[in-house]
Nucleic acid binder design. Structure first.
Lengths: 136, 136
DNA sequence: TTCAATGCAAATTTTTTGCAAAGTC
DNA sequence: GACTTTGCAAAAAATTTGCATTGAA
């Protein structure tokens, strides 16, 4: 079985995750495909180069990486979960026309002030509209 | 079959939707259950009083109401879609501990300014954290 | 009577689970 | 050798579809 030597290994170790080949492969796929792929996208993308990988393993690895906060989920689609290796804070924009999802690094994450006694862990912002291509 | 005489009928007519009994019932359920129910919640809630209603119809009606913007979707759960008859702009807060979803009317919807050429239709904000009950 | 809406059952899609086999330290 | 991870197949959960029946204007 092929062995990976790259910085995904270092990253996983930082998070106290044993850098097994499948884990490295999933993380590498996410790092090189910044298109917010679904579990199925990842599975299909990897199975060509990685003879033995199963959907179960892709789900296992994704759940682990989300749990340990190495990656994050993008629940902008109604039907299936998407995943994102991007760690810089950013928003997601989905085009109503073409369906493409854009990262928005420039937009500022809003400061949300809630009623007292609510503790905020995370703020997620999804924006929908028309992308430049579809606005024409 | 029971016939409804209430303001849901008026509301549906406003949106150019024929106020058929099943539609009125689903909308009424959403108006009286401000708990962001799932399609299944609605189906189970209605089938006791409405002898003949099917899951298909619940989905049909929900899709129609969302399409016509009478109600909105709440995609805060990874697994299943939730629905909301609330029309006042507000945010959603989900407690990481108890899973309860809160409406946040006081929090201000952020002004998002994107790169030019992006047209914003809708901004959705999901907040996760601990609710007062679970913060104790 | 024409067209729209419904309900059933089956199919589809996404994700999870149980468990035996294989891999890792 | 003990413990973790994997893969298969099957199950589960949420949603959609095809189509015949029913209901509404």
């Amino acid at each position: 079985m092929q062995t990976y030597y790259n910085n995904e290994i270092t990253l996983l170790k930082t998070f106290d995750i044993r850098p097994l080949n499948h884990r490295v492969a999933v993380l590498e796929y996410l790092n090189t495909h910044r298109t917010h792929p679904t579990a199925d996208d990842i599975y299909n993308g990897l199975k060509t180069t990685m003879a033995s990988i199963s959907r179960t393993t892709v789900y296992n690895v994704l759940h682990l990486l989300v749990d340990k906060k190495v990656i994050s989920t993008v629940g902008i689609d109604a039907q299936e979960m998407r995943y994102d290796a991007q760690t810089t804070p950013h928003l997601h924009f989905k085009c109503d026309q073409c369906g493409k999802i854009y990262d928005m690094f420039d937009a500022t994450i809003p400061e949300i002030s809630l009623e007292p006694n609510f503790t905020v862990h995370n703020v997620t912002v999804y924006i929908s509209g028309l992308c430049p291509d579809c606005s024409k």
